[in-house]
Design a protein around this nucleic acid. Structure first.
Length: 378
DNA sequence: AACACGACCAACCGCGCGAGG
DNA sequence: TCCTCGCGCGGTTGGTCGTGT
């Protein structure tokens, strides 16, 4: 089949859009909706192909696009979702309000991918490059199951995304006030055609987050709250906890939750490095950590966080194959090296790494099982 | 001041899929 | 059932800008 490609059309403009072109496109869509993209350029008086117009609209001109830097919540969500979904940017974008798949893709490629790489984590598999998590036999079954579930979740996400698209397309001519209005992001910008609530939360993602919680309370799994019980996208989004691992010899830990766990008045959104340090100080004692977890943290509030500052993670150049999850495990078991003399890096690797691996996968699977009742898939 | 280099990101390109004739 | 069209997605490119030398 020979398609008539956009770039093959003679006389059509390519390259950066001018303000005039933007204005034409905006004005036309505001008045008529986009309708058929192929027919749009002629109607709008643009010397562009429909594809180019669509791209310009969806990636730049749409009124419900949030521009600017990604915040910590968004970064964490991208990392988590990418771990589950891979390069399914549109599916990931479905769960990041007001961000386009292109923007997420760019941000991943220019920032997050490199950051994970620096940390010694394979950005494709999200596993340590040495594969200390991935090659063991203990979790192979769990890993396969999780992968299978992730596929389901992925399929569900795609279906969600499709529904969102269809709901948008169901009203060909958007209301006049579409432009400039605070459109409700991904779910619907066309009134009641689609539910106003956010998509159902990710069960696997919840589980993943929940696992981290379980790792914090090793030996007290009975305190584990059902991951389906508290997640609330609309209020907390994907709330961010911060887990920073300094590269200096003393492994330390900082927390935050969206509900100001460690420090009244400190919320995740306003959390900065200084606050991380402050929170760490307040949470130094294991008992205190546990208390804070029990009293304040919901399951969904916890997950590894990739800091904006690379130095907050174990530096792979000075601590071979020390990605975040290793530092993470270390924290879980020992809390801190200086307080627990039995916990050297070697000891951790020798004595706990295998168990942690099992704990990680088993807990993840348990949590997924526990969350199945709330899932439309499981 | 000029140049080199890298980071960033808007836009392009090609492929695959679904709808409809 | 086959073919064509239109669209969306993911990968890639190339222009712009900032920074270092």
């Amino acid at each position: 089949m020979v398609k008539s490609q956009c770039f093959e059309k003679v006389g059509l403009k390519k390259g950066p859009w001018t303000p005039e072109e933007d204005q034409k496109l905006l004005a036309y869509i505001e008045e008529h909706g986009h309708g058929s993209w192929r027919a749009l350029p002629a109607k709008a008086g643009l010397q562009r192909c429909g594809k180019s117009c669509r791209l310009r609209w969806t990636n730049y001109l749409r009124p419900d696009i949030k521009r600017g830097k990604f915040n910590l919540q968004e970064e964490q969500s991208i990392i988590q979702l990418h771990a589950l979904l891979g390069n399914r940017w549109s599916a990931i974008a479905t769960h990041l309000p007001k961000r386009t798949d292109n923007e997420i893709k760019n941000y991943w490629n220019t920032h997050l991918k490199k950051r994970l790489d620096k940390m010694g984590i394979d950005p494709v598999t999200h596993k340590p490059k040495a594969d200390s998590f991935g090659s063991g036999s203990g979790h192979s079954k769990g890993s396969a199951n999780l992968s299978h579930m992730a596929q389901w979740e992925s399929a569900r996400l795609e279906a969600e995304a499709r529904l969102v698209r269809e709901s948008k397309l169901s009203v060909p001519n958007p209301p006049k006030n579409l432009l400039g209005s605070a459109v409700s992001a991904q779910v619907s910008d066309k009134g009641s055609a689609a539910p106003t609530e956010r998509p159902r939360c990710l069960d696997v993602l919840k589980a993943w987050q929940g696992v981290v919680f379980s790792m914090f309370s090793v030996g007290s799994s009975d305190s584990l709250e059902s991951p389906t019980s508290t997640l609330n996208f609309s209020e907390n989004a994907l709330a961010i906890p911060l887990i920073g691992v300094q590269k200096n010899p003393t492994t330390t830990l900082a927390f935050a939750t969206n509900n100001a766990t460690c420090n009244s008045g400190t919320t995740a959104s306003e959390f900065d490095r200084g606050n991380q340090l402050e929170c760490f100080e307040k949470l130094k004692e294991p008992a205190q950590v546990k208390r804070n977890l029990d009293s304040s943290m919901a399951i969904h509030d916890i997950s590894p966080y990739a800091s904006d500052h690379n130095e907050w993670f174990v530096d792979s150049s000075t601590n071979e194959n020390a990605p975040i999850i290793d530092g993470f495990s270390e924290i879980l078991v020992c809390n801190s090296l200086d307080r627990n003399p039995t916990c050297s890096g070697e000891n951790i690797n020798d004595n706990y790494a295998g168990n942690l691996e099992d704990i990680y996968w088993n807990s993840l699977l348990n949590l997924v099982d526990a969350s199945q009742t709330g899932s439309s898939v499981f």
